[in-house]
Simulated assay, not measured.
Amino acid sequence: MSYLSREEMLAVIGKPDDSWLSQRDHTLFLLMYNTGARVSEIIGVKVGDVVLDEGSACVHLRGKGRKQRSVPLWRSTAKTIRAWLKVNPEFQPTSPLFPNRNGHAMTRANVALRLTLATGNAAGTCPSLAKRHVSPHTVRHATAMHLLQAGVDISVIALWLGHESPITTHHYVEADLNMKERALARLHEPQTGIQRYRAPDSLINFLKAL
């Protein structure tokens, strides 16, 4: 299972410049990481699906079978989305939150391409990304793994990702255990043999004198 470390993920999200594309992509990748959304869910988000109220910011996602779930937003994500909406005052509640240059919702291929370009740019400051193929699903995996490693209950992660069954989410547990086993294998196993205890002469003489 391919996923990014937190450092790699933050490098891909990056810091936007003043261009429209850069700000859109930054907001897009941040929301993808925050929510762990499928690419089909993220490109389907409308402006009206985002709630930016202080203390209860969230986004409504439509998953498989048109099932809807709500995912809370970090303060940084909500702040970034507010800034993005200010750049685009013409957006209506029914407008796609992440349009292409023609105003239509981005396609899966478009998101994948922008993510590949962002990964290539991020490799300059994060060399471990140089040979990585990062897809939208890689970001979804990263969200799940980071939640798991932070101690979030697997049933909560299943709800977060929109899994129909927690059994699907168990793949992340198995991947996490495999990763830890590989790390453990790199360590030198300590000697497990129990050495025979030999009492010092002072203790033996004391016991003889009893």
Rank of each mutant, 00 (worst) to 15 (best):
G55F: 09
H170K: 11
A142S: 15
R186G: 13
T119Y: 10
L210E: 05
P96C: 06
P136S: 11
K180F: 08
K208N: 15
H171Y: 14
A144C: 10
K86T: 13
G193Y: 02
L97G: 00
L184P: 01
D153A: 15
L113G: 05
R38Y: 05
S76P: 03
K15R: 13
R140H: 12
V134F: 10
L85V: 09
A123I: 02
G55E: 08
A112G: 14
A112I: 06
R114L: 11
S95I: 09
C58W: 12
R75K: 12
H26N: 12
V39R: 01
V51F: 06
R38P: 05
G124V: 04
G103I: 08
R198V: 13
I13Q: 12
Q92M: 10
M145L: 06
S5W: 05
D176S: 07
R108I: 11
H141K: 05
R101S: 12
N34D: 07
T119S: 11
K86N: 14
N205F: 13
H163G: 00
W84D: 01
V50I: 11
I154M: 08
T94K: 09
H26K: 06
R82C: 06
L73W: 04
I157D: 04
H26L: 02
P200E: 06
K131R: 13
K67W: 07
L207T: 01
K64D: 02
S128I: 08
E181S: 14
N110I: 06
P136T: 12
G14K: 04
G44C: 00
D25L: 09
D176N: 04
I204E: 13
P127M: 00
M179Y: 03
A183C: 05
P136H: 10
A144Q: 10
G103R: 07
R101P: 03
S135C: 04
E7A: 13
A199R: 13
V47E: 03
D25M: 07
G14S: 10
D153T: 13
L117E: 14
A185T: 14
L203E: 02
G44R: 01
M145Q: 05
V152M: 06
D18A: 14
P72N: 06
G124W: 02
G103D: 07
L52M: 04
